[in-house]
Design a protein around this nucleic acid. Structure first.
Lengths: 67, 67
DNA sequence: AATTTTTATACCCGATTTGATATAAAAATA
DNA sequence: TATTTTTATATCAAATCGGGTATAAAAATT
């Protein structure tokens, strides 16, 4: 349900990056990274992809009920 | 890469719905459904989820290289 | 082929996002 | 505990999305 938010947050810490590092590397604003990790629902898809691309991921279609 | 767009397009036709039907059922504008199926990259995440929810799906994190 | 239906593209405009910046709170470190 | 770093929240302005609408193109139906 908020898998994207948690994925980014955990992966970022795993790599010992600050939100600012992530923003710079992804080419998005710091504000966006914060909104993302806070679970904002109305984010723009392309910017989410900009962030996920750092981890070799992207957004896709998944089942609503998957653990 | 544009898996979301294709998923919606195919699933919609599978159920023999028009873009207008889909828009009405999902509670989004017809314009949005069209942008989505045409592969617009900057869509809002929550609205994409509104559409996918009709099919028991949502947006999630996936590997960039998955067939 | 003619008609109808569906889809694609373009424009206007209100509403919302995003980036930048500032400040406060929380967490980490010395 | 004091200091530094990181994260959270708020405001402002510029940029852009999304709904609605109109028109054209394409597809489907008769």
């Amino acid at each position: 349900m908020d898998s994207i938010r948690l994925f980014v947050k955990h992966k970022r810490k795993e790599l010992k990056l600050t939100q600012e590092d992530l923003a710079l590397n992804a080419g998005v604003g710091l504000r966006f990274v914060r909104d993302l990790e806070q679970g904002k629902k109305t984010l723009r898809l392309d910017k989410v992809n900009d962030v996920l691309a750092l981890f070799g991921k992207e957004v896709g279609v998944v089942d609503i009920n998957r653990e």
